[in-house]
Every structure is written in structure tokens, then in C-alpha cells.
Design a protein around this nucleic acid. Structure first.
Ligand SMILES: NC(=O)c1ccc[n+]([C@@H]2O[C@H](COP(=O)([O-])OP(=O)(O)OC[C@H]3O[C@@H](n4cnc5c(N)ncnc54)[C@H](O)[C@@H]3O)[C@@H](O)[C@H]2O)c1
Ligand SMILES: NC(=O)c1ccc[n+]([C@@H]2O[C@H](COP(=O)([O-])OP(=O)(O)OC[C@H]3O[C@@H](n4cnc5c(N)ncnc54)[C@H](O)[C@@H]3O)[C@@H](O)[C@H]2O)c1
Lengths: 208, 208
DNA sequence: ATTAGTTTGTGAACTAATTCACAAGCGCCA
DNA sequence: TGGCGCTTGTGAATTAGTTCACAAACTAAT
């Protein structure tokens, strides 16, 4: 299959969230034009994005909301339940572990790791904080799909090495560092300082 | 000035963080090639990015680390202190309010708002949670530059309306909804569910 | 059955972003 | 001072991503 751009995948994800809203409103079909308006893009973009994976619409009618939702879920791999571990039981880790939105979409946090003796063994929601040193061993049994890394920047490269050795192939990284991983491991970074700097840039360069 | 792409601004932000690391190591100069390796891009990309704003390097030598850092800070508007308010004193809001990394970069959280009577008036770090209904009035005195929105998705459009009415021109949004704002307001979205779906897609479509 | 009114799917055209490639500038050394 | 080794800065070429524009396919109405 043709290589799919990251921007395309983001939009698919966005379309799916709109379809879920539309579905709750009880509407049965939607046009590319309407999806485009919701997403701040163009109808041609919507149709092109979808056409990379097949033809799901009916000419003159638009797309069936439940059918297209199903297709997008399939494309995005949301059919299955994913096993997620969180590394770093700190402030961000806590917010994420308690967030319901993830499980709703099939991302189940099944373990939390930390290196701090004071935190290890403590109960956290329905989980117990495990020592990071056990990650590799645990992974052979638990088979994590995704690691969410929320450790201090300076420790993160070492943490990520352990994650990779544990055979985990996808990482969502919150530390403001650039990770280097083997090519079969996918990384997404969430860097809030960078987002704020983007806003700072926008505020500083208006009307020029 | 020429329009600058968002991807360029992200990279500038990234280069700056590398330069700070390099500076701590005591190195005086760095080449575009080295910056490129750190950022996972090419040296031509680095030079092109920088050349949009001026010529900061010395041929044969590279870039002076402190000088380029200074230029980047200037370009990104990091010279001044920014006033940030957080809207939504929940799990994510709490993590952000307690995060030191922001103040270090000149983003000062000077107020927190919520609509929940049980939270209003409570102390939070060195701040007191204020009622969202007072945002507009407060803004005339406090002059917030950036609003960080961390409210439940369903309330967020209404919250953002209030933020816009308060005259705030930059929003960092954590709710998984698409915001519609006047064109003089800049929005950046942090959508973790979307990031996880990107990883799900990658895991589901390997080696095809 | 025909027609009018929609909306898709997709090559072609266009625009944006990245990479190439090389002249020009700089430091260093003899 | 001249030559060598590096590295920048930038047009030109290339590649990637978006938008245009229209034939084809469908519904509904008559
Ligand atoms: N808090 C925020 O709002 C925020 C915002 C943006 C980015 N971040 C980034 O997210 C990361 C975590 O931030 P935080 O505020 O949650 O920090 P925190 O200090 O609250 O939590 C970090 C946790 O990681 C644990 N840890 C340290 N080394 C470890 C290791 N080797 N293995 C396993 N666990 C280890 C610590 O014990 C601690 O519990 C940091 O990189 C930070 O820069 C945080
Ligand atoms: N917790 C996470 O890890 C996480 C992850 C991704 C996205 N998010 C998103 O971030 C947002 C906040 O999530 P959270 O987990 O912090 O939720 P939360 O329920 O812990 O906090 C939300 C806060 O917003 C306040 N609030 C509600 N309506 C308000 C209004 N009109 N004005 C001002 N305050 C209002 C609530 O009183 C509450 O304190 C949500 O949109 C959520 O989807 C959260």
C-alpha cells in the first residue's frame, strides 16, 4: 500500500470523532462537504483522504455515518483493545492514568511503572505502581502494545532503552527530548513547551 | 515578511532546546549538520529554516551557540514573560499548574479558573481558583496573553467563547474538540487520543 | 422513463515543503 | 599570501501535499 502521510492519519482521527458526534445526533449520512466544514478543511481533501483506503460513499448521497465510522475504526486499528503501560507515576502520569477517554477508545492502561521507592507498591486507581526494573520481565507476560513515557527529561533516554528492550513498538513521549529508537518502533511526541512557543511566535509576529 | 510554516516554527523550537543542551555541555559552536542529526532532519533543512530569518552562521565554522540561542529566542518571542491562565482546575489543569518547565521558559501561570463551586476559592500552589464567570472582568486588569483550556469537551466551546470575549489571542486547547475562533486568535490543540490513534494506525499497518 | 439536483472519486494542476548542489566565505597553517 | 578544508546560504530541482474540476453515479420527483 501507498505510504500514508501523518497529516492524513490525524485527519482520519478527526473525522472519526466528528462522525461519533453526528451519530449521537441521530443523523444517518454526511457529505464530504459537511465533514470538511467541521474539520476546517476542504471537501476535496476529505474525499482524497478517504479514497486512499477505498470508496465508502454513495454519489448524490454522501457517506453512511455508521458505515464510515466502522471503516475508519478499522483503518485506524481501533477494532482491538490495546494494552498500554504508563512509565512515570508523576503529575502527568497521574492525570493520564485517571483519564476515562482512553479506555473508551480501546486504550487500556494495564500497568504503571516508576523508579521511586516511595511510589512503588502504592495503589493507583485499580493499579499498583511497579518498579521500572521489572518492566522487561513483565512485558513478556503482559505484552504491552504502547508505552506512555512521562518521566523527567534527563532519565527519559534510559527509560526508552528499557521500553525498546521490552519489545514495545509504540511510544507516546511527554518528555521534552528527542528520542532515538530502532526503525520498527514508532514514536509520537507531545511537547507542550513547544506548543506554547508556537503560540508565543504567533503572538510576536502578527500583522507582518 | 514571508509566511512561516508551522512545521518550521516547531523545528526552531526544537533547535533551541538542543542549543540549550549544547550550551550546558560548554560547546561554543555547532554546525547545521550536527543540529540536523539531533533533530532527525537534514542540514539543508536547518540552514533553510534559519535563513528565513537572517544569516546567523559563519562559513567554515558553524553557528555560535549562545548567539543562535539568543536569535531563536527572539524569533520565537521568548524575550518577554507571558501571562498564562489555566481554565479547568481538573486533572490535566493540576498537572500543568504544577509544572515547573513552563515558568523556566517565560510562561507564567498567573490564574486558574473553574466553574465548580467546590473548587472555587481553594488554594492551588500559589494561586486561588477563580470563578470562570469573572474571567472577562479579570482579564481587563491582568491582561492574559495565553489561555490553557483544560475543560470537558462538551463545555469547551462555551469556555472558548468567554476566552475570546476576554480578549485573549492565543489558546492551548486540551479538549478533544475542534474550536472555531476569530482569525486573530491562534489555537494549538493537544489531542492525546489522536496521538494514540496515530500509534494504533502505525501498529496496525506495519510492513505493508 | 426522463430529468433535475446532488455528491462522489479521481486525474490533472497547482502550491508548499524538502533536498540537492555548489559558489562563496572563513579559519588555519605554512 | 596562498592554499586547504570546512561549512554556510541559497537558487534550482525534486518530492509531497492540496485543491481544482468534471465525468459518473445515485436519489427523488414527475
Ligand atoms: N506536569 C506537566 O504538566 C508537564 C507538562 C509538559 C511536559 N511534562 C513532562 O512530562 C514529564 C513528567 O513530568 P511530571 O510533571 O509528571 O514530573 P513528575 O516529577 O511529577 O513525575 C515524574 C515521575 O517519573 C519518575 N521517574 C523518574 N525516573 C524514572 C525512571 N528512570 N523510571 C521510571 N520512573 C522514573 C519519578 O519518580 C516521578 O514519579 C517530564 O519530562 C516533563 O518535562 C510535564
Ligand atoms: N486527564 C487527562 O489525562 C486527559 C488527557 C487527554 C485529554 N484530556 C482532556 O482534557 C480536558 C480536561 O480533562 P481532565 O481529565 O482534567 O478533566 P477533569 O474533569 O479532571 O477536569 C475538568 C475541570 O473543568 C472544570 N469545568 C467544567 N466546566 C467548566 C467551565 N464551563 N468553566 C470552567 N471550568 C469548567 C471542572 O469543574 C473540572 O474541574 C478534557 O476535555 C479531557 O478530554 C484529559
Amino acid at each position: 500500500m501507498k505510504r500514508i502521510a501523518e497529516s492524513t492519519v490525524r485527519r482520519l482521527s478527526l473525522y472519526l470523532s466528528f462522525l461519533e458526534g453526528i451519530d449521537r445526533q441521530g443523523l444517518k449520512t454526511i457529505s464530504s462537504d459537511e465533514l470538511a466544514r467541521l474539520g476546517g478543511t476542504t471537501s476535496a481533501q476529505v474525499r482524497k483522504d478517504l479514497s486512499l483506503f477505498g470508496s465508502f460513499g454513495k454519489r448524490g448521497l454522501g457517506y453512511s455515518v455508521p458505515e464510515l465510522s466502522g471503516k475508519l475504526r478499522e483503518i485506524l486499528g481501533l477494532g482491538k483493545q490495546w494494552r498500554v503501560c504508563i512509565i512515570g507515576a508523576g503529575k502527568i502520569g497521574a492525570a493520564l492514568a485517571r483519564y476515562r477517554g482512553f479506555a473508551e477508545r480501546g486504550f487500556n492502561v494495564t500497568a504503571v511503572y516508576d523508579s521511586d521507592e516511595a511510589k512503588i507498591g502504592k495503589r493507583w486507581e485499580n493499579l499498583t505502581v511497579r518498579p521500572i526494573s521489572e518492566l522487561e520481565k513483565d512485558a513478556t507476560k503482559q505484552d504491552f502494545d504502547i508505552a506512555v513515557v512521562a518521566t523527567p527529561a534527563e532519565n527519559t533516554p534510559a527509560v526508552v532503552k528499557q521500553v525498546v528492550r521490552a519489545g514495545i513498538k509504540a511510544i507516546l513521549n511527554f518528555a521534552p527530548v528527542q528520542l532515538s529508537v530502532p526503525s520498527d518502533v514508532t514514536v509520537r511526541n507531545v511537547n507542550m513547551a513547544m506548543e506554547l512557543e508556537g503560540l508565543s511566535f504567533a503572538l510576536s509576529n502578527r500583522s507582518e
